[in-house]
């Protein structure tokens, strides 16, 4: 890897910064390559989640009543809060990228910390929701009971959900399978992202980004916004199915 770098025949704009890799002709080329590569990686992520969205579309059309009933067991308050939290974290990350671009180290550190905190808040709320599902026997495979949909109990102060026939009630397991697969995969991406956030925070505090070598932050920003976009679709698809019924 540390093969002798060849002196470039001619360099169009003076000296090269130390962080330019030897096989790139110019810094612009290195930057473009990095963000293009990141976008291609995000395409693979689109297709990765795409498989689950296809499954969702098929089963939602087949088992619509089960999807409505399953969706109504989710807390709209927690879901909306989480959406707000994630959008805000996307905003703080965008600000982090801006601070890095304009070489504001303090602002960058603050933005990264805020993003990290908001990410943790998201996962905290998510785990409260998961725990609730576990208590209610709504975890497919491990701990599942469709009877709550056949004989729904009225929450205090609310009308009971309409009961489902037994076969449709059992299909709520498909809804919850997709719910856990999609939100779980999303949460996994969040956890990976937070690991990277911690790494960037340490680097930022050490001043590693002060010299303008911020490709990592910019590309991480793209990743974090992508995770946000996935949630932007998951939220209405999972939480907001016919709330009026």
């Amino acid at each position: 890897m540390d093969s002798p770098t060849v002196a470039l025949h001619e360099s169009s704009h003076g000296e090269h910064p130390s962080y330019q890799r030897h096989h790139f002709v110019s810094m612009a080329q290195q930057k473009e390559s990095a963000s293009f590569g990141m976008w291609l990686f995000l395409l693979t992520e689109i297709m990765f989640f795409g498989g689950m969205f296809t499954a969702y579309l098929v089963y939602r059309n087949w088992y619509y009543p089960a999807f409505v009933a399953g969706s109504h067991t989710l807390s709209i308050v927690l879901g909306t809060t989480n959406t707000g939290v994630l959008i805000t974290s996307s905003f703080t990350m965008a600000m982090g990228v801006w601070c890095a671009e304009t070489r504001r180290r303090g602002g960058l550190i603050l933005s990264l910390i805020l993003t990290l905190v908001l990410g943790l808040a998201f996962l905290g709320i998510k785990s409260v929701e998961y725990h609730e599902k576990w208590v209610q026997h709504h975890v497919p495979g491990l701990r599942f009971d469709a009877m709550t949909f056949v004989h729904p109990k009225a929450e205090p102060g609310q009308a009971a959900e309409p009961p489902l026939p037994l076969d449709m009630a059992q299909h709520t397991e498909v809804y919850f399978s997709l719910y856990f697969a999609m939100t779980g995969m999303h949460a996994l991406h969040m956890i990976i992202g937070m690991g990277l956030l911690v790494y960037m925070l340490i680097q930022a505090i050490r001043g590693a980004y002060d010299n303008g070598n911020i490709a990592f932050i910019e590309n991480f920003g793209l990743y974090w916004h992508f995770v946000d976009i996935v949630w932007i679709f998951l939220f209405p698809l999972l939480y907001l199915i016919s709330r009026h019924q």
């Binding site: 992520e45 990765f48 089963y59 497919p140 491990l142």
Partner: peptide, 27 residues
């Protein structure tokens, strides 16, 4: 990546029994 997610769902179905492809659960 589409192969990847299909295999992940098979693995999840075998290990914890989610029901995306399972006809007995409606998959």
């Amino acid at each position: 990546p589409v192969l990847a997610i299909a295999l992940v769902l098979v693995v999840l179905e075998r290990t914890i029994g989610i029901g995306v492809f399972d006809p007995t659960k409606g998959g």
